[in-house]
Computed example of a mutant assay.
Amino acid sequence: MEKSPFSRAVAVLREGRFVLRIVPWLAARVMQCLFRLLRIVHVGRTYPESCWAKGERIIVVFWHGRLLMMPFVYPGKPGVLLVSQHRDGEYFSRIATLLGFEVIRGSATRGGMRALKQMIRAIKGRLNLVVTPDGPKGPRAKVRPGVIEVAKLTGAPIVPVSFSASRRRILQSWDAFLVPVPFSRAVYIWGEPMYVPPTATKDEVTKYQEALEERLDLLTMKADDYFRANL
């Protein structure tokens, strides 16, 4: 007997819920396994450590294309991740939760003001904030003003970081998403903290955006070239 439209809708809904549970779990396990198969080097780790030694919480930033292995950049530190409210955001949110992060949902276009307030509250609540300033849809390698505003309002330093691997695949996506090849050597490179004064004007905020873009681009270039220079 042919199913009614209502029965078909219920079946699709149940399948969707099943997929929403299983796919994030599988993705998180794959990410963890891939990380364990890499030989990791850390450079500049004293930068975030010096901030924590002073009792500061930090805003960790990196380009969206280097996201895959970033959940493991500094395990054991409490963190909250900004995840967009677009359709795929629910999957990313669940993956992040499985990997030990708290999650704030929002972006520059959807839920922006609410997300901004939650980010400020998280830092004041002694959590480190994790942001991809060019996510979730780009443009690639362009810092949006939100992260600068959070630093301005909270006094928390922005600490840039990048990741790369000796053998890697770059996907044909808007963000040039990097996937390390298993058993490769890999590197995390941190940059100097950036402090934004609470008196920064709109023009000065723009200059901090540009400066952060330059730092992230330089760190990413250094990460990509690291093993070429350290053979």
Rank of each mutant, 00 (worst) to 15 (best):
G155C: 04
G155A: 08
A156F: 04
A156M: 08
P157V: 06
P157F: 07
I158V: 14
V159N: 02
V159L: 04
V159A: 06
P160H: 08
P160Y: 04
V161E: 02
V161Y: 01
V161C: 15
S162H: 09
S162N: 11
F163W: 09
S164P: 01
S164K: 02
S164N: 14
A165H: 10
A165K: 08
S166W: 06
S166P: 01
S166G: 09
R167F: 07
R168C: 08
R168F: 00
R168Y: 00
R169L: 12
I170C: 05
I170V: 15
L171R: 14
Q172E: 12
W174I: 13
D175R: 05
D175M: 07
A176M: 09
F177S: 10
F177E: 03
F177N: 09
F177K: 06
V179P: 02
V181E: 11
V181W: 07
P182G: 10
F183K: 11
S184T: 14
S184E: 10
S184D: 10
R185T: 04
R185I: 04
R185G: 02
R185F: 13
V187L: 04
Y188M: 05
Y188T: 07
I189N: 10
I189T: 09
I189R: 14
I189S: 10
I189M: 13
W190S: 13
W190T: 13
G191W: 06
P193I: 06
P193N: 11
P193M: 09
M194D: 02
Y195G: 00
Y195H: 14
Y195N: 03
V196M: 07
P197I: 09
P197V: 05
P197N: 07
P198K: 13
T199R: 14
T199S: 15
T199C: 03
A200D: 04
T201R: 04
K202V: 07
D203G: 05
E204S: 00
E204M: 07
K207A: 14
K207S: 09
K207L: 13
Q209P: 01
Q209R: 15
Q209F: 00
E210Y: 04
E210N: 12
E210T: 14
A211W: 01
